[in-house]
Design a protein around this nucleic acid. Structure first.
Lengths: 318, 318
DNA sequence: TAGCTTGTTGGGCAAATACTCACACAATGG
DNA sequence: CCATTGTGTGAGTATTTGCCCAACAAGCTA
């Protein structure tokens, strides 16, 4: 404690370089001179700071167009909370921007003093969002996974993010040690009746806020790509009118759950009710359009984080 | 409302360009192409976004050395809150870093749900801090100026920041329409007895948190440079042992107020008590050393935002 | 100890960026 | 009406940055 020697880690140096670069406005040459390293090393430090996510850039100018679209979405679809981020016209990313926005929104919730239960879905968008999340201590909260975290091959489901989020925030976390889709309806009942699972399901039902991804059911449906359902099962869902999937459960274009098929084997918790919780979907891109639209129509969600282009398309629909 | 035409301002474009650059990671060439402007214009947009403060960079890696220094300061001097930012070795700025940190700390206070009274001092550091502050709506709070805002020549005191802060946050603000230093003790009493001033003084005494700058009394003493006191008055204060000045009031090296002289004419509110409020000083640099040290010794403050180098010097003193 | 992998460093260079300048244009004022 | 001033634009250029590569050190294996 009184020792003046404090171990300086690699990341400390990176943070310092990043600070000198972004906050103090030095050039990399100057940083190199001040830190007694070569310019290349300084460059590496700075870029390390960026790639490690030490450097967070925020734009706090409300862009009129985005605010307007957000307000229109709220009004038109009766949503309680919407956020619209700018669109990068050339990018094919399906998470760019919304991930940051989702992370920021999560942070707002987590900063609450009063304990909350945060339900968390799955998917690429959420995974990216959690990566953006700044570490924050919030032992007062509970985070509960809404889906199982076991792949058909027994490995951990890659896009289940409960462990990632638990890493970032010091809250009690509740994973669901279940396959995403059980092999039969009976197995699902059996699994859900387990003493270890029941409390998690109960907690999920009590969520104050939930963040969900929306999966499409096209050729590249994440549910299929990640091996949770077979091509035949995917086709069957589509023939039955399925257009999207939320935490594994398929819905038609009106947001009604598809009857039977894989839906009767999905081991996920029910989506928390909009009556009792803020249910926020984070999704953008043309492929998600139908899904977002369906989730809104079916009143599955009451919050949406999306991008400009998607917002325009949603509003453009009759 | 339903009109699709939303006026796009200059800053909106800047924000969009900044977003594409910093968040989406485009080059300025790409931005130019996407926005249909020349590369130079794109560059200008981005740099405008930066200079307008639309782009906020945050480093959320706790640098071990800074944390350690902060902890040492707390322990050694019995402070409740300390923050130490990295030092830029070559820079002569006296606000770099601490201004951002002060803005962040203010934001934390302002985000509180329960109404608080925020006392605000004066000076270059605070001015810079307020500039960094993101707009935030907090009608529940009150912001009260601790010093008068009238220069000897009748103009508004430039470094009085109450109006700047009022601009940024939507809280009720209470300026003190008084000269900083009255012409006589009697005038001060008279001014303070005014019906418009008394409530402000009472509010200042009730502050939950106050942010103060510390001014030195050297050749470039802000109080003198800004024309509030004459060279003779400055010299007199120094001869009387004055080493620093907080909201216009001079203190000796032990943090005791200088008796008589300009001190008996300073029209500022008393510094809020450390018993009832968080009194946070933001100051860095060699010239402020004595002042910071005095403020600590005199228990005028219980919080400090400073930089690495200053922290080291403070801890290095016997 | 030679041979290998792994990780770090600095040189060099192409790409990207910041800045200066000259000019066009609109608003302002005589 | 023209001069003036401020603001925005494009061209050109100097600076800064990102990245590839070869060299080198450290650790590990045989």
């Amino acid at each position: 404690m009184s020792k003046p020697e404090v171990t300086t880690t690699r990341l400390d140096d990176a943070a310092r370089a990043g600070w000198l670069y972004y906050v103090a406005g030095n050039t990399q040459d100057e940083i190199a001179a001040k830190l007694g390293i070569s310019r290349q090393s300084a460059q590496r430090m700075v870029s390390l700071a960026v790639s490690e996510g030490l450097v967070k850039v925020r734009l706090d100018h409300p862009i009129a167009r985005c605010l307007d679209l957000a307000a229109q979405l709220r009004e038109r679809f009766g949503l309680k909370m919407t956020e619209v981020v700018p669109t990068d016209p050339g990018s094919t990313s399906t998470t760019l921007g919304v991930a940051d926005a989702a992370a920021a929104e999560m942070t707002r919730w987590l900063r609450s003093e009063t304990p909350i239960v945060l339900g968390i879905g799955t998917g690429r968008t959420l995974k990216a969002a959690i990566e953006q999340l700044s570490p924050i201590e919030c032992p007062q909260h509970k985070v509960v996974s809404l889906t199982g975290n076991i792949s058909p091959d027994g490995s951990a489901a890659y896009y289940n993010v409960i462990f990632n989020i638990a890493d970032k925030i010091k809250a009690r976390s509740f994973p669901m040690p279940l396959p995403v889709i059980a092999s039969s309806p009976e197995e699902r009942e059996l699994l859900h009746a387990q003493a270890m699972i029941r409390p998690v399901l109960e907690l999920a039902a009590m969520a104050n806020v939930a963040f969900l991804g929306i999966g499409d059911l096209g050729y590249e449906a994440p549910l299929f790509v990640d091996g949770f359902i077979s091509r035949e099962e995917l086709d069957a869902l589509r023939r039955a009118g399925g257009v999207c999937e939320i935490i594994g459960r398929a819905f038609d274009r009106n947001g009604s759950p598809i009857a039977g098929l894989t839906n009767e084997r999905v081991a996920s918790a029910p989506i928390p009710s909009c009556e009792t919780a803020m249910v926020i979907a984070t999704a953008m891109g043309a492929r998600k359009m139908q899904g977002i639209s369906a989730a809104i129509k079916g009143k599955l969600i009451n919050g949406l984080i999306t991008d400009e282009q998607t917002a325009e398309m949603l509003l453009g629909e009759k």
